[in-house]
Computed example of a mutant assay.
Amino acid sequence: EYLGGQHWIYVFQSGQSVPNGAASRMPPYDAGKFMVDLLIDGGTSNERKVFRDCAWVGSSRSNPDYPMLSVEDGLIPNEARVSLRVARPYFQYSASVLDVDNTTGSANNWDPLYRFSTATVATRSEETAILEDLLEEINVVPNPYYAYSQYEANKIDNRVKIVNLPEQCTVRIYNLSGTLIRTYEKADPLTYLDWDLKNEVNVPIAGGVYIIHVDVPGVGQAVRKWFGIMRPVDLDNF
């Protein structure tokens, strides 16, 4: 079984051999100070600086011949070692000649040579059919809304999220009579927006069914029905 289930091993290489920007790359061994400082500061940019020099990730497995001890006894029954192995050593190999010093007709001088293709996994852009399929992922949560959601900060906060949105789109919210209740013009990298269950003039909506229309320029439209029950404001306990 996997040791503990979630014990992953990360191996990093020094990235300071690059000609430019070496100061922001992973240094030689420094007891983890470089990555700890960046990860404590937080932010996507700092995470990218750390993990762009990650060379290998794997998990450890326990040996069935050495069952784990109790927590009181320290769990691990011996001095733990981590061995990182590849399938074959980095030597010269040939399937056609015995003398690998003879490199006549060889590929890469008989040194290991690997080929792979990202044709089936590469990022595809500007494919309208794929983007249209992603419109199906747009949703409103929670739905139905029973007077409470986990996104609310206090007793007078009413809030739902419209999720899986593209960077640029227009969200319009209507009641069943077709009256426009609220409009959002989204133009940011977030994949969601918060609706505080109020109309354009900041008045709380009534409970009922609403239609949420999402228009994505150049791609298409998505329509979702949402049902909400509003709770009365409890001013006595506010």
Score class of each variant (00 low, 15 high):
D133M: 12
K225I: 03
L190C: 10
P166W: 08
T128P: 01
P28K: 12
D65F: 03
D215Y: 08
T183M: 11
L39M: 13
V86G: 11
S117D: 11
T120G: 01
I212L: 05
S17W: 15
A87F: 03
R48I: 14
E127M: 10
T170F: 00
V11K: 02
D157K: 02
W226A: 15
R52W: 12
N158S: 14
Y93D: 10
A31V: 08
V97Q: 03
E72H: 12
M230H: 02
E136W: 01
F116L: 10
L190T: 15
L98I: 07
E79W: 15
T120A: 13
P204T: 06
A87E: 15
Q150Y: 06
F12W: 02
H7C: 05
S149V: 00
I9S: 00
R61G: 01
H7I: 14
T123K: 05
T183Y: 08
Q221K: 15
C54P: 00
A147W: 01
L135C: 13
A147Q: 11
P89E: 10
N78P: 02
S96T: 15
R172P: 01
V18L: 08
K155P: 05
F12K: 01
F227W: 09
N143T: 07
E185G: 04
G74P: 07
W110T: 09
K198W: 08
E152Q: 14
D234Q: 11
P142L: 04
G4H: 02
P64Q: 09
G32R: 01
N175S: 04
V209E: 06
D37K: 05
A206H: 14
E185I: 01
K155M: 11
Y210E: 00
Y114L: 15
F238Y: 14
A147E: 12
E1F: 00
K198S: 00
I156M: 12
W56L: 06
V141W: 02
G218N: 12
V71A: 12
R231A: 15
W56N: 07
Y145A: 08
E200Y: 04
A23E: 11
E126L: 12
L113H: 14
P64R: 07
V203Y: 03
R115G: 11
G43K: 04
S106W: 13
D30L: 00
R61W: 11
E127F: 11
R115S: 13
A147Y: 02
E152A: 10
Q221N: 15
T103K: 15
D41E: 15
L131G: 04
F238D: 03
D41V: 08
R172A: 04
S96G: 05
F91N: 13
V160I: 14
D65N: 14
Q6F: 02
A153V: 12
K161Y: 08
F238N: 02
I205F: 03
